[in-house]
Simulated assay, not measured.
Amino acid sequence: MDWMKNLNDVMNYIDDNLENEISHDRIAEIACCSIYNFQRLFSYVAQTSLSEYIRNRKLTLAAFDVIKGDEKIIDVALKYGYDSQDAFSRAFRNFHGVLPSTVRKEPVMLKSCPKLSFQISVTGGEKMNFQIVQWPAFKVAGISNRIKTDRAFELVPSIWDKAWKDGTMQKFINFFPDYRPAGFLGISVGGEWGNSEEMDYVLAVTSHVDVPECNPIPTPIGMEEFSYPAAMWVIINADGELPNAVQEVYQKFYTEWLPNSGYKLSDLPVMECYMQDNHQEVWIAIENASVFRTL
C-alpha cells in the first residue's frame, strides 16, 4: 500500500474542495482506512490536526478574497463554510491576528498555510522494536469515557488522574488477571466512518483471551465488558518515561514504519499497555501482511 500516494491524494481532494463540503467518508475512501485512523496518522505526519489544517487552508484562501475586495465579507464567509460573518471574523482574527474588515482598510501582515505534500525521507536510523502477531479474540473490562477527538491529548491524562483518585485503578488492581494485552490498558476507539468529532477512551484490563487455557474473569460491578475480534496486530515496545516514550512510538510508526511496510491499518481501536518500571507497549491492528517479522 502506497501511503504517501494516499496522503497526497487526500491533500489534493481537500484543496479541490475548500469551497465545498469536504466529506470525511470520501477522505476515508481515498486513504483506504477509517477517518479516525486517518486523523491519527495525519496528526503525527503533519504535526497538526486534520480539522486545523483544513480550517487554516480555507482561511488562507479567504484572505486573498478579502484583499481582492470583489466580494462582500459575508459572501466570503459563506463561500468557505461559515454560517455568519461574525463566526468567520472570529476565525479569521484567530488565524491572521486581524479582522477581515481591517484588511479592507489598511495594509496588514497576514499568515499563510500552504498546501501540504508528502514524501518518504530517510531519517534517524533509530531502531523500533516490534513484533507482528495474529492474536485471538479477547475481552477487556473497564470504563469508557466519551471525549472530543481534537482534545484527546489534553483530556486523556485527566482521565487517568481521576481514575487513580476515585478508586477505579484500585478496582483494576484487585481484579487484575495476568492476561495479554497486559497491564493497564488505554484504548482509543473511534473507527466509524464519518464519525470523527468524538471518540471513546477506555481504561481497562484484559479479562479473557479466546484460547482453551484461559479462564474468563467476571466483569467487576460498575465496569463494562468490551470485545475485540481476532486480528493481526503490530506490537511496538514503548519503554521509557511517559508521555514521550509512547508519543515517539506513534511518530516513528506513522512517519517511518507504516509508509514502508506494505501493510494497511485495520479499523480497530489502538491500545496502549502500561506495565511496571516504565514498560509500555502500543498495539495497532493491521491488515494484508504477507510476512511476519521481528526486528
Rank of each mutant, 00 (worst) to 15 (best):
A238C: 07
M199R: 04
S290E: 14
D239L: 04
Q131M: 14
Q85H: 02
L50Y: 03
Y179E: 01
M109W: 11
H96L: 00
G262C: 04
L7A: 00
V133A: 13
I143F: 15
V189H: 13
V66M: 05
I35F: 08
F130R: 07
F95A: 08
L59T: 02
W164H: 15
I235E: 03
W160R: 09
F118G: 02
A285H: 00
F184R: 05
V249E: 00
E52K: 10
Y44Q: 14
Q85A: 12
F95P: 01
I159T: 09
P157C: 08
F153C: 10
S266L: 08
V270H: 04
K115H: 11
S112V: 13
N8Y: 06
T48Y: 01
K162L: 14
F42L: 08
S84Y: 03
E287C: 02
I30W: 05
L41Q: 13
K79T: 10
Y250L: 07
V10H: 01
K105M: 13
P218S: 09
A46G: 02
L7R: 04
S227Y: 01
S23T: 07
L50W: 00
V140L: 08
K5H: 10
H96C: 06
Q134I: 14
E126T: 12
A28D: 02
P229D: 02
C214M: 07
I235G: 01
Y274P: 00
D75Q: 11
N145L: 08
P107S: 11
E272V: 02
I35H: 07
E224W: 02
I173Y: 10
A182T: 09
Y13N: 05
C113G: 03
V189D: 09
K171E: 14
H24Y: 15
A91I: 05
L242A: 09
S117I: 03
S34E: 03
W233D: 01
N215C: 13
G167W: 07
